[in-house]
Design a protein around this nucleic acid. Sequence first.
DNA 1: GTCGATGCAAAGGCTTTGCACAGCC
DNA 2: GGCTGTGCAAAGCCTTTGCATCGAC
Lengths: 164, 164
Amino acid sequence: MLLVPAPSAEPRDPSILRDSLHDRGHRLTPQRQRVLALFERIGSGSHLSAEEVHQRLLCDQERVSLATVYRTLRLLSSMGLLQELELPEGGRRFELTGDAHRDHHHLVCVRCGCTEEFEDEAVLRAGAQACEQQGFRLLECVLTVRALCQRCVPLAAGAPDLSC
Amino acid sequence: MLLVPAPSAEPRDPSILRDSLHDRGHRLTPQRQRVLALFERIGSGSHLSAEEVHQRLLCDQERVSLATVYRTLRLLSSMGLLQELELPEGGRRFELTGDAHRDHHHLVCVRCGCTEEFEDEAVLRAGAQACEQQGFRLLECVLTVRALCQRCVPLAAGAPDLSC
DNA sequence: GTCGATGCAAAGGCTTTGCACAGCC
DNA sequence: GGCTGTGCAAAGCCTTTGCATCGAC
């Protein structure tokens, strides 16, 4: 049966993690593999908080302490394997770094918090252009569009309170 | 002498604040006026953390407790007079809401934290288009470009660690 | 005069850190 | 075997909240 959902999570070569770690004098540990494997399992579109990573690993019988989750998320982010999202309304979240410089953006409903992802080539060009003009070297472009989703537009229309 | 720097901070009519507050059953207090006036003084491009707002008010001999600063920032944001930024690397910051749907973006150096602002029409179009496709109503578009500034590129080039 | 807002201090999350032990290289 | 990582618990931010008092309406 090859009906795997295949959420753009090509089963990454495990040696990449090991080599990246060794290059920086770090070690390949089961905990680090578990965290990265979790993100690969859920696909590169999903974002998890440290707490969620911890909970999911516990559910899967994979024992990793919360402190180590925090340490690992920071490490994997600094290595570029994960990236931190800046979604509004609190809560740092992480997701798998997609293909090099994936141009992925978020449409966030400020009322209910639901998010959609989308891509746009023009945005990446704009970011690249800004970097060039200022002499910066581009790492990543993230567009956050704050908006009201279909369900929330009517609810917010009467009340002046847009951002609950 | 009309050589005022004029950072797009048109001296807002104070009655706007009072009316907005009253519409929601809130009161116009000196503290709320002080916080909003501070943001108007520094212009709509600058972003401050709660702690910074508190410090600046203290320097200006304007006594407001830190708890009230937090409460006021939240209130003014919910009223749409301020907006919260999602800059990376921790720290919630607030800035004056500019002219309706100002298309302002941030170029952030992930190493030293310095930020530049820029504008780009294509980004706004991309955000608007995404909203339309998903049936969302656009509130705001913020592009965050994570990059290395000129000073930091050489420092990060040798070391594989990009995001200190 | 009423009811919301403030200030203070204490409580609350989330995240980091110190330390002894475990385990990768 | 050396030195990095881990787990645990304690400490550290930043932010929110309870409560008595103050003050806008």
